[in-house]
Design a protein around this nucleic acid. Structure first.
Lengths: 169, 169
DNA sequence: AGCAAATTGTTGCGCCGCACAATATATAGG
DNA sequence: CCTATATATTGTGCGGCGCAACAATTTGCT
């Protein structure tokens, strides 16, 4: 059982696979829980899944505006709320942006986001050690933790080697 | 050497001490670094130090508006930027709010914020274990970390015992 | 069809911060 | 010491983002 469950995606990989897999898992999860993945929510999740860099709400509004069925900002926000609540997407607090959850972890997992300042890509990793220390720190402070926000900005390996500035779709 | 360097402040302690000590350290730090702690910046820091709950920018604007020398929102934002840059205050990303740094840690320390959802108080703790695991996780992902954001919301011990909802000044 | 609940659309307001202008402060030369 | 120039700080106007409140619509169920 590896400590890390994921790393940075390669910039040239096939997004179609991520998108279809993410949507498939979302459909299934919603079905099980008896909540509805409406067309709008599906389209928002689709937009998120097509990017491994976090998208701002208005980035999505813009994407939808260019498509056949635009949606007002408020509706996009609500769809994002839904997706985050259902664990299908994450909110990146330090960027006020959102990210599709690409590898469905169980709720309760401790997730750490590494944000590359240059290419914008995000690695979503789970660390058991981090979770243990977090619990330990909370215990020492008599604190009962609920929603951990663990985000680190920096440079991904690829951007450190090459000086290239290539944004991921 | 304790693992944790600080916990939640008692709601009934003397804020005057926090404020004066924080300002004193700020004066000194600015003097050493050759940057200026202008009256406005000082007043903003003072407002932050008087509260152990994070303050939004407009909370501070409001405080200043009630005082003798109001300041426009933009100026407050700039003062906050300055304070954060100089390590005299922290930005709480998950709340879009700011907090005076009350116990000057060296730059480079890994800091974890525990935010009480009920009373709003924040505990600012440093964990060496957390820092080690964070570095380990980064290494595994070939990631070069820069600015860690570690925030956990939940309930502080005091709020868990009593059901009282008493906001800290 | 008819009703309750959920979802989406519309309006509006407050927060956030950029870009430019005005002012205050530091530095150099006479 | 005084002024001129560069630098740093603060003020103002404005546009974009985030979201609350209410209205309109759709969906699920009987």
């Amino acid at each position: 059982m590896p400590e890390m469950s994921s790393v940075f995606p390669h910039p040239d990989h096939d997004h179609g696979v991520c998108v279809s897999e993410t949507l498939a898992r979302a459909e299934e999860a919603c079905g099980e829980r008896g909540v509805r993945l409406t067309p709008l929510r599906r389209r928002v999740l689709e937009a998120l899944a097509a990017s491994h860099a976090p998208l701002g709400a208005y980035d999505i509004v813009e994407k939808l505006r260019k498509s056949k069925e635009p949606a007002p900002a408020m509706s996009v926000y609500r769809a994002l709320d839904f997706l985050v609540t259902e664990g299908l997407a994450h909110r990146i607090e330090s960027k006020n942006a959102f990210l599709a959850c690409t590898h469905g972890h169980d709720t309760g997992d401790i997730v750490l986001f590494m944000l590359c300042d240059r290419c914008g890509t995000v690695a979503e990793v789970t660390s058991t050690a981090l979770g243990r220390d977090l619990a330990q720190a909370a215990k020492s402070a008599s604190f009962s933790p609920k929603a951990p926000v663990l985000e680190v900005s920096g440079l991904c390996g690829r951007c450190m080697e090459r000086g290239v500035r290539r944004k991921v779709s």
